[in-house]
């Protein structure tokens, strides 16, 4: 799994701690003020589980709990759930500030791949 972002994002790598903060819905802005827009696949998909565990290194149920705690206390929002890898690629390519993930073999040229540093 690799992290993908909208092509206008200038970074080519991202610290894991920052990625966790973004996926944890705590960090809302890219450097340069572009709003972050997070796309994920449903919790029960194998892609989401692999991304959570290997790339983010957070168990998917812990990520879910962190989102729930924020949403139900008025401190944050959920990420947007997309139905398929195809939709993930389309939405990340077309939404400024978007971030998401796909299998490395499925990356298309209209999204930017972010390395973890």
């Amino acid at each position: 799994m690799v992290v993908i972002a909208h092509p206008a994002i200038t970074e080519d790598s991202i610290p894991r701690a920052t990625l966790r903060a973004i996926l944890g819905m705590r960090l809302q802005r890219w450097p340069g003020e572009t709003p972050v827009k997070v796309f994920v696949l449903a919790d029960e998909t194998p892609e989401h589980a692999t991304f959570s565990k290997s790339v983010l290194q957070v168990f998917p149920q812990q990520l879910r709990m962190a989102w729930d705690r924020q949403v139900f206390s008025g401190q944050g929002q959920y990420p947007e759930v997309v139905a398929s890898t195809h939709e993930m690629l389309a939405r990340v390519a077309s939404t400024p500030g978007a971030i998401g993930y796909v299998k490395a073999s499925e990356v298309t040229p209209n999204v930017r791949v972010l390395k973890i540093r």
Binding site: Q28, V36, G74, G76, Q77
Partner: peptide, 16 residues
Amino acid sequence: VNASWRLTPALQLSGG
């Protein structure tokens, strides 16, 4: 029931 509205990346309104 709760609602949240993110007006800008720095500003969110929420109510439950």
